[in-house]
Nucleic acid binder design. Structure first.
Lengths: 211, 211
DNA sequence: AGCATGGCTGAACACATGTTCAGTATATTG
DNA sequence: CAATATACTGAACATGTGTTCAGCCATGCT
């Protein structure tokens, strides 16, 4: 997905190195010198290209959000299996790149307006996904429709945020494809049936009971 | 809950100040001088009492984990309403103290073994809670029993971690008592019925809760 | 009384930080 | 070709960092 590091422009190499280190150690704990060293360049070049360390952060943010936004947009026309497209996305994005995971983990923790906006977009995605889910199931629900999108996001994004503390309590890498599929299935199941629903397929199992 | 700051011992004042600042800005972004200033004491005192800044962090961690552990233990004999005791706990702990929320948010993001251990204990709690839930419902389930505890924790801890990005997308303070109760109810409902279960069914009506 | 102990401080240290600046090489343009 | 812009560097600067140290003050012990 990425060009080999050594023939990227200096600017790009600095951005990549910063992404890596910010994801790993956090912004405050990463010095401009460390970024430059990781990129094999001079610290002064950071200032030359980005004006300040904060400028670097902005550039990295922008690039990450661009990648993310692209992946989010790519999702909408998904004519494939209806539900779980959000989970599918999170799999494709987060599963692949542990660096991106780390960076997002840190970004979603800040209270910058940019982070809130990003979450807002995820929320929109969850809401439309929920609508489709409900429509597919017949439109009848007593659930708290305002909170459910948040619950969905907790189920999806939670493991991303909790990866560092979850993984030591597991025996398999939690972002490997099969584990991810299993988790996604469990999420869809929980939403559709709760813990105690019967296993049979999507139709309305219990009744056609008018209210 | 806490003694007035000015008649605490210096050691305790430093710990409290550090807790506050670490929660707010993070460890790396908080200088020992800042902690001392917040406590109205000399930076050298940090070294005198804790040996190093890292020692300070350890002391704060220890104290927080102690508080948390106490609250967790206090939970077990809960003879009240069966399910939702975990949610109840998170309400009592996290809801009350925004500082503790911030600190935990930051702690759960690290990959120190201590954080993983803390999560492990939460996991245990979720597992036993799940057992009780299943037993109460008749013992029949097709759900992925290995993953469900993680899902429960995502639902409970997720909003804690996501507070900074969730809150701007809401119109009410998400850790106020009524909102918390509503969220807890939604969680219990989701677990028991999924999105599409009918409202009546087993157990007591979910919204009833003693003050 | 003397004396030790421990909380506490101000000033200093060595070092790391973000940033600036003068200057070099390389390419692009007129 | 000269001129200019751009990528890039090494050394330096001011400031902030974690930490040390010598010493002050109060308390308590003998």
């Amino acid at each position: 997905m990425e060009a080999s590091p050594s023939d990227l422009t200096g600017r790009a190499r600095l951005r990549e190195a910063a992404l890596r280190l910010f994801a790993q150690r956090g912004f405050a704990a990463t010095s401009a010198r460390a970024v430059a060293a990781e990129a094999g360049l001079s610290p002064a070049l950071v200032m030359h290209h980005f004006g300040s360390k904060e400028g670097l952060r902005a550039a990295v943010d922008e690039q990450v959000l661009a990648r993310l936004g692209a992946a989010l947009r790519e999702l909408d026309p998904g004519g494939g299996d209806l539900m779980g497209s959000l989970g599918e996305m999170s799999a494709r994005m987060f599963g692949a790149d542990p660096v991106l995971r780390g960076y997002l983990r840190r970004a979603l923790q800040e209270d910058s307006p940019a982070s809130a906006a990003l979450f807002g977009r995820l929320l929109e995605g969850a809401r439309s996904e929920l609508e489709r889910l409900i429509a597919a199931e017949g439109g009848r629900t007593d659930a708290d429709l305002q909170w459910v999108p948040f619950q969905m996001l907790c189920l999806i994004v939670g493991p991303l945020l909790l990866e560092p503390v979850m993984q030591p309590n597991l025996d398999q890498p939690m972002f490997d494809a099969p584990v991810l599929a299993r988790r996604s299935a469990a999420n869809q199941r929980l939403l559709r049936l709760g813990l105690f629903g019967a296993d049979q397929s999507t139709g309305a199992p219990d009744t056609a009971k008018p209210a």
